[in-house]
Design a protein around this nucleic acid. Structure first.
Length: 797
DNA sequence: GAGTTTGAAACT
DNA sequence: CAGTTTCAAACTC
C-alpha cells in the first residue's frame, strides 16, 4: 500500500476510460477484464483501503474503476469485431433502449456485476405470466419429488425464485429457455457443428465467424422461428415437460464445446466482438420472444396478461419502483463468483473443478441432488404461497451482460422445467457460468428458501435442516450475480419459525433485541462497521456476500453497488488469501458425506451441520454467540479448537483440544483412541446424529470413503484415507485423521516422519478432496494450487 | 447507551 | 507462521 500504487491505479483507470464508449455492451465485456487480469495483461489493482475515503477523488476512482471495463481498442478494432459490429443491427426498441442506457459514454456505468433493479427497469418489458411458470414449476416439483435423479445436471436445476412481490422473478425470468427446451434438437445440431468448426480451424473471416457465433449461441432467426412456432402451437407449457435427459445431453455437449470455443476466441481477442454480435442478436431475440410471448399470453393467460400488460405499462413508464414496499431492506448479493466462474471457463482451466467436464460428472452427486430436492421443495413451497397477482413474469428481461444472465440463471426456473435461459450472449455465458459453477446455482438458490432471507437467518436457523442445507450450500460461488434481495426479504416464514423467532427475540438482551427486531422488521441484515469500510470480513454484510443497505449503521461504507469494482477487488484479494473466505461458515454433514451417511443422519438436528472451520473459543465455552458454532446453532466439531466446550448443540465428552493435550501428555492413550476410532468407523451405522456428542465423533471418525467425493467436503479434518486411519502403528496419523488439532497434537518429529513416509499421499488425497468437491471450486488456478497448499499445511498441522 | 468482552480477521 | 493488532459483534452494566 503506497502512494505509487494509487497513482498507478488512477492512471490505469484514466487510460482505460478513454477507451470507453465503443458501443459495446458493457456487461458483456466485464468478465474479460477479469480474464486479462488473470492472464497478466493487466496488473491487479491494489486497493488501498486505508486511502479510501468519501472524498470526491475517491469516488472518482471508484467510478473510474467501475467504468474501466470497456474492451480494449485492439479488440474493438479487430476485423472480426468490425464485422460483427455491422451484423445484427439493433433494430428493436428494446435493445436500443437498453443499449443506449448502458453505453452512454458520459453516464456512470450501472453496476452490472450486481444486477440492479435499476438496470432491469431500464429494459423494455414483455411478460410471460408468472402463473405459467408457477404452473410449470409445480409439474417440476412433482418431478423433483418423485424422481429427483433425473436431474442430472444440477447446474441447470435452478429453482425459480418466487418472492411474493414477484419483482425479482419478473425481472429475471426469461422464457427463452422454453425456446431452448423446445429447440433442443436444433441446438444439438448446432452443437455438433462446433467441433467441426473448431477442428477445421477458425479463421476470422466473416462467414466463419458468423457461423461459429450462430452455432455457439444459436441462430437468432431460428430461435425466433421456433419461438413463434412454439407460441402459435401453444406449446410453452408442454415444452416444460421435455425430457431432462435430452436437455442435459444437449447442454452438456454444448457447454463443453462452448467453453472450448470461447477459450479459443479469447485467445484471439475476438470474443468481445462475438459477444457484441450476440448481444445484438439477443436484442433481436428479445423482441421476437416478446412477440411470441405475447401471443401466448393472449391465448392462454388473458387475465394474467392483463395484469402483465398493466405492469408492463407501468414499468415502461418508469412508474413501478420495483418491489415497492417490498424492496425495503433489499440488497443485492455480490456476484463475484459468477464472474470468476465465467473467467475460469474462458481460461479453460482444466484444473478447475468448475470445469464443464467436472460439472457434468459431478452434477450427479447424490448430495447435490438431495440438496436440490430440498431446495426445490422449499422453493416450491414458497411458490405455492405466492399470490397469483404477484407472479407475473417479465419475459423480456434479457440480460445484456453475462452478469445479468448469471442472475437470471441463478434465479431462473429449473431448466428441466421452464427454465428461463437466455438466447444469445446472455444465455450462453450464463450457461457457461452455470455449468462452471454448478453447485453455485443450486446453492445460491438458498434465496428460495424461506429460512434464508438473510445470512444471519441462515445462521440462526442453522438447526433447521433446510437452513442447514442452505448454510451448507452457500458456496464459494454462492453469491453469483444475483438480484435476490426481494426474495431474501420477502419470502415468508412458517408460523412455527416465526414463533421461534419471537421466542428467541424475547430472550435477547434489550440491545440485541432491538437489533434483532430491526433485523426482522427489515428482513435484512445490517452491519455497524465503522473502520472496515464494510470491505472486510469483519463486516457481516460483506462476508455474507451482500451489499450493505441504507439501514446499515456502517460508516464510510464501500460495500455498495456504486463501488462494485472496489468490492470485487477487495473480495478477490480476500479470496486470494483464503479461497474459502466467502464460503458458508456452516456446512452440512450431509453434503460432506455419502448418501448412506445422510440416510443415517438425522438431518433435522443441529448435529447434521457443523462449522466449517470450527471455533476457537476459549472463554465463552461455546455457550455464547461469540462462538460461531453456537451462533449457527450447530455443535462443535472436531474442527473446533475450543477450550472447555459446552456447546449445547453438540458437545464432545471431552473437548478436542483438551483431549489432544491429554494425548500429548500421555501418548499411550493414543493407541486406545485409535482403536476406538477404528471400531467406530467399522460400526455398521453411525449413532444417532441427534446425539449432541455424535457430531464430533462421527465427523472425526468418519471414513473418508464416505466423505468423498460426492460432497462439498472442503473442510479439512476428515479427508484422510482409511488406509491412513488403519495405520494404527502410527497414532499420530490417527490423531490427524480425527482431530483438526493435530497442529497442537502432533510432535514435530511425527509430522516430519509422516511427510517422509507419505510425501505425496496426503497431498494427493487432499487435492483430491478439493478437486472433487463440486460445490466449492477453486476460483483460479493460482488459488487452486494455493488452496491445495493451504490444505496440506492444515493437514500438517 | 457506554463500556467491556470476545473471538475472528487481519496484520506483522 | 506464530504472535499481535484490529475489528465488530456480543454482552454487561
Amino acid at each position: 500500500m503506497n502512494e505509487k500504487h494509487v497513482e498507478e491505479r488512477k492512471r490505469e483507470r484514466a487510460s482505460t476510460r478513454k477507451g470507453r464508449g465503443s458501443g459495446v455492451a458493457y456487461g458483456a465485456f466485464f468478465p474479460l477484464r477479469w480474464l486479462f487480469k488473470k492472464r497478466g495483461k493487466q496488473p491487479l489493482p491494489i486497493l488501498l483501503l486505508d486511502k479510501m475515503d468519501r472524498t470526491p477523488e475517491a469516488k472518482r476512482i471508484a467510478a473510474a474503476t467501475s467504468s474501466s471495463i470497456s474492451s480494449s481498442p485492439a479488440v474493438q478494432e479487430s476485423p472480426f469485431s468490425n464485422f460483427l459490429s455491422n451484423l445484427s443491427p439493433l433494430n428493436t426498441a428494446t435493445t436500443a433502449s437498453y443499449t443506449q442506457t448502458l453505453l452512454g459514454t458520459n453516464l456512470p456505468t450501472p453496476p452490472v456485476v450486481f444486477t440492479s433493479p435499476h438496470i432491469n427497469l431500464q429494459r423494455e418489458t414483455s411478460f410471460l405470466e408468472r402463473d405459467d411458470i408457477v404452473e410449470a414449476g409445480s409439474e417440476v416439483y412433482k418431478e423433483c419429488n418423485t424422481n429427483i435423479v433425473q436431474v442430472q445436471n444440477p447446474s441447470f436445476a435452478e429453482v425459480q425464485l418466487c418472492s411474493p412481490s414477484g419483482c425479482v422473478d419478473e425481472y429475471l425470468a426469461d422464457p427463452v429457455e422454453v425456446d431452448s427446451t423446445c429447440s433442443a434438437d436444433l441446438r444439438s445440431q448446432r452443437t455438433n457443428e462446433v467441433p467441426r468448426l473448431l477442428h477445421s480451424g477458425f479463421a476470422p473471416g466473416k462467414e466463419s465467424n458468423t457461423e461459429v457465433c450462430d452455432i455457439m449461441f444459436g441462430s437468432p432467426e431460428n430461435e425466433a422461428v421456433l419461438l413463434s412456432d412454439q407460441a402459435e402451437k401453444d406449446l410453452p407449457l408442454s415444452s416444460l415437460e421435455m425430457s431432462q435427459a435430452a436437455i442435459n445431453q444437449r447442454d452438456g455437449k454444448k457447454t463443453e464445446e462452448l467453453s472450448r470455443f470461447i477459450f479459443e476466441k479469447v485467445k484471439e481477442s475476438d470474443v468481445n466482438a462475438c459477444l457484441v454480435s450476440r448481444a445484438q442478436n439477443c436484442g433481436e431475440n428479445a423482441a421476437k420472444l416478446q412477440r411470441a410471448g405475447c401471443q401466448y399470453d393472449e391465448k392462454n393467460a388473458s387475465s394474467q396478461s392483463r395484469h402483465s400488460n398493466e405492469r408492463k405499462k407501468r414499468v415502461q413508464k418508469g412508474l413501478v419502483k420495483e418491489g415497492g414496499q417490498n424492496e425495503r431492506g433489499i440488497r443485492r448479493h455480490l456476484q463475484f463468483e459468477a464472474a470468476k466462474a465465467y473467467k475460469f471457463t474462458i481460461l479453460g482451466n482444466s484444473e478447475s473443478p468448475c470445469s464443464l467436464t467436472h460439472d457434468a460428472t459431478n452434477s450427479r452427486s447424490p448430495s447435490i441432488l438431495t440438496n436440490l430436492k430440498s431446495l426445490a421443495s422449499s422453493h416450491f413451497d414458497n411458490r405455492a404461497s405466492s399470490s397469483p397477482q404477484d407472479v407475473s413474469c417479465d419475459t423480456s428481461q434479457f440480460p445484456s451482460s453475462p452478469y445479468e444472465s448469471f442472475t437470471s440463471a441463478q434465479i431462473g426456473v429449473n431448466s428441466t422445467t421452464s427454465a428461463p435461459i437466455h438466447s444469445g450472449i446472455g444465455l450462453h455465458l450464463n450457461r457457461i457460468s452455470r455449468s462452471t459453477s454448478l453447485s453455485s446455482d443450486i446453492f445460491s438458490s438458498k434465496k428460495s428458501t424461506r429460512y434464508l432471507r438473510m445470512p444471519e437467518q441462515m445462521l440462526e436457523h442453522g438447526s433447521n435442516n433446510i437452513a442447514t442445507n442452505s448454510n451448507t450450500m452457500k458456496p464459494p460461488c454462492h453469491s453469483m450475480l444475483v438480484d435476490q434481495e426481494a426474495a431474501l426479504c420477502e419470502v415468508g416464514m412458517s408460523a412455527s419459525q416465526e414463533a421461534d423467532e419471537v421466542e428467541e427475540l424475547n430472550q435477547l438482551s434489550p440491545k440485541r433485541k432491538r437489533r434483532k427486531d430491526a433485523y426482522m422488521s427489515e428482513g435484512c441484515k445490517r452491519c455497524n462497521c465503522r473502520r472496515s469500510k464494510c470491505l472486510k470480513l469483519y463486516c457481516e454484510c460483506f462476508a455474507a456476500g451482500v451489499y450493505c443497505v441504507d439501514s446499515c449503521a456502517c460508516v464510510n461504507c464501500y460495500n455498495k453497488p456504486e463501488f462494485e469494482d472496489t468490492v470485487l477487488d477487495i473480495r478477490q484479494q480476500i479470496e486470494a488469501r483464503n479461497p474459502l473466505a466467502f464460503t458458508p461458515k456452516v456446512v452440512d454433514n450431509a453434503i460432506d458425506s455419502s448418501p448412506n451417511f445422510m440416510e443415517e443422519q438425522d438431518l433435522t438436528t443441529p448435529s447434521s451441520a457443523r462449522h466449517k472451520r470450527g471455533c476457537n473459543c476459549k472463554k465463552s465455552k461455546c455457550l455464547k454467540r461469540y462462538c460461531e458454532c453456537f451462533q449457527a446453532k450447530v455443535g462443535c466439531s472436531s474442527a473446533c479448537r475450543c477450550e472447555g466446550c459446552k456447546n449445547t448443540f453438540g458437545v464432545t465428552p471431552e473437548p478436542v483440544y483438551d483431549r489432544a493435550k491429554r494425548w500429548e501428555a500421555h501418548p499411550a492413550e493414543k493407541l486406545d483412541n485409535v482403536k476406538g476410532a477404528i471400531a467406530c468407523i467399522k460400526a455398521p451405522a453411525f449413532s444417532s446424529a441427534s446425539s449432541s456428542n455424535s457430531a464430533k465423533i462421527s465427523q472425526a471418525q468418519l471414513p473418508s470413503s464416505q466423505l468423498q467425493p460426492s460432497g462439498a467436503h472442503y473442510d479439512i479434518p476428515y479427508d484422510d484415507t482409511p488406509e491412513i486411519l488403519k495405520e494404527t502403528s502410527n497414532p499420530t496419523k490417527v490423531v490427524k485423521a480425527s482431530s483438526p488439532n493435530q497442529k497442537r497434537v502432533s510432535p514435530p518429529q511425527s509430522r516430519s516422519r509422516l511427510r517422509e513416509r507419505s510425501p505425496t499421499g496426503l497431498r494427493s488425497g487432499r487435492k483430491f478432496v478439493l478437486q472433487a468437491m463440486p460445490s466449492f471450486p477453486p476460483l483460479t488456478p493460482h488459488r487452486n494450487s494455493k488452496e491445495g497448499t493451504n490444505e496440506i499445511e492444515n493437514d500438517d498441522k
